[in-house]
Write a protein that binds this DNA or RNA. Structure first.
Lengths: 342, 342
DNA sequence: GCGGGCGGTGGGAGCGCTCCCACACCGCCA
DNA sequence: TGGCGGTGTGGGAGCGCTCCCACCGCCCGC
């Protein structure tokens, strides 16, 4: 049964109106939750909608009204895949959960090349989405500002700098570094090193700041030889660990600014015959799935990634409805997950 | 400058037509690549488009025409997160790459609850996407058939059974199991066990078949005590390995049908004092990021995940344009990645 | 008792496209 | 010379909504 003759088969708002014995306008008002509708009409329309199985046509809505009921989640992947991948999935999970309730569509846009970037910029300026969520933005990324200029609501995941002007949801990266080092020094480590992310990224600088605070708080001497810059990759972590071992053979604790780099460091430590955690305690950031698989399982500072996604979505929705004129500035706390590597 | 007074600011097809000195129809024809246009007109329109920075309005297009220029990628997450997460990201990556060239939008839909499932089914029947890509479908998932009934093109990632009737892109799971066992027996292992996925999933049964073929080909006796069913989770892998150790203390090789389960097995082996690979050789499937991090690094059978995503997208696009009446049935080869666990 | 509100309503006028019909205009044939 | 088909073209008629104006009652105040 059903789905037989008709071309498109879908009932329209007009048909709903006819069945409910009201005008088109009234149906539209009911659907959009306008307060100026009598209970009687509301009920009649509701029944007609149910009977007909009516679902509003999004294209028509977008064309007639202003909104599209869709937001874009943008993930730039220009360079090497900097962040551990599960990170993105968790963000997506959070965003998706929040959007589902608002009945908004999630458009996923991976930007790999400048061509794709250009295409996305066209997208933006064509106002084809009600807002954008930007993940993994670099310090010099112009996309957030472009969105602002075009009047498209935007929310970032992470800041580009301390003075970020676009709305953002970030995690407490200074606190992450700080708690990692506190944990290390709390276990009696005295020569605590750090492997940083790329220092043109604010997130990396923040974690380094946290490290420095922790070192100072423990009354240990600041020693720049204990700081090795890397790039969030495993190979980078490996290289940095080698440097560290060479410069400071007496290192007994390492705070790697990401789990992936910690994994790199771990393999170098193994090759060098240093036991973890006996000789060198090791701690990462992200609490990624891989952390648990490492040997020994890696102590790590967890970020509430899914929650960040959720908060970003919520902030964007608010910005779209214009509920809150103040751009969202949220910094979520991190949490130490202690395992056997420390 | 720019973006000053005008309400929407975007030029319309009509304005392009006026500027090019042609009719609306002609501009539309040029944009959609119709052959029935003179070179002169084509050129004039092209210039006008460039000068005005015209970008077609998607909503209007969708409303007037039949297509929406969007496809949905559906990821059911009802139960525990069965598959390792990076899997999905790689699929997304492949799909996205292929779609970008076709200038199609990627709608991501996570289905967690029956409510979200229902919403998506409404979506489908409202014809709001030109097609669907379905990932991680279970044997009894009705979604693919629903899509078929509604006449929405669909492509699956993996089959639900040997007789799958909906278009699909799968990897050679039998071959994966077979090559894993061949590798194990090739290294002289004689008591080779397997930890399977949930046997109501076709993928799990295929890998088990491959295992059995491998055992037989090596002239080893089939022994059901060497087969332990699990569920693709780490805890499941752990439980299965314990069983195996109890039933067959002389086991010297284990083929786990996923890296995650291999990780579980590995930790049980450690606790039991069995060395890997000396006492027991261990091999997984997926070649996930975690495999490399394990100690020792895990030998694994890699699936061409990103390529699968790409092929799925390509197949779907073809099905949408109606180019190929035959539903896509692709089975991609897997590849053994040898590391230190075997 | 009459005028002015206000809650509630109907329906016209688009939104920016695609589809398709109608109509030039060309060169060809009979 | 007239007719005929084939190109190339213009533009009307929607697609299914939202927005908004106009309108109908009713109740209130004076």
């Amino acid at each position: 049964m059903a789905v037989s003759g008709r071309q498109t088969g879908r009932p329209t708002l007009e048909e709903v109106a006819a069945r409910a014995g009201v005008g088109r306008g009234t149906v539209s008002r009911v659907i959009n939750g306008s307060p100026r509708v009598s209970d009687r009409a509301k009920e009649a329309v509701g029944r007609a909608i149910a009977e007909l199985g009516y679902v509003p046509n999004r294209a028509a809505r977008a064309l007639a009204g202003a909104r599209t009921d869709a937001i874009a989640l943008v993930i730039p992947e220009t360079e090497s895949r900097l962040f551990a991948e599960p990170y993105f999935l968790d963000i997506i999970r959070g965003v998706s959960a929040e959007l589902a309730d608002a009945d908004m569509q999630l458009l996923l846009t991976l930007i790999r090349s400048s061509k794709e970037r250009q295409r996305f910029e066209q997208y933006l300026s064509a106002q084809r989405v009600d807002g954008v969520l930007l993940v993994s933005v670099h310090g010099d990324d112009p996309l957030p500002d472009l969105a602002r200029e075009l009047g498209v609501p935007a929310v970032l995941n992470g800041r580009r700098s301390a003075g970020e002007r676009v709305a953002y949801v970030d995690s407490d990266n200074v606190g992450a570094g700080r708690s990692a080092v506190d944990h290390l020094t709390g276990r009696g480590r005295r020569r605590v090193a750090t492997i940083t992310g790329p220092l043109d990224m604010y997130v990396a600088r923040c974690r380094l700041d946290g490290y420095r605070q922790g070192v100072e708080a423990a009354g240990l001497p600041a020693d720049d030889r204990l700081v090795a810059a890397a790039d969030f990759t495993e190979e980078g972590g490996r290289r940095a660990m080698r440097e560290l071992l060479e410069r400071c053979p007496d290192v007994d604790g390492v705070f790697a600014a990401s789990d992936v780099m910690a994994a790199g460091a771990r393999s170098v430590l193994r090759e060098a015959g240093r036991r973890v955690p006996d000789d060198v305690a090791l701690i990462g950031v992200d609490d990624s799935a891989g952390a648990r698989l490492m040997d020994p399982p890696l102590t790590s500072v967890r970020q509430p990634i899914e929650e960040m996604g959720r908060r970003m979505a919520r902030a964007l929705l608010q910005e779209i409805t214009g509920a809150d004129p103040e751009p969202c500035r949220v910094v979520l706390p991190t949490e130490l997950v202690v395992r056997d590597s420390t």
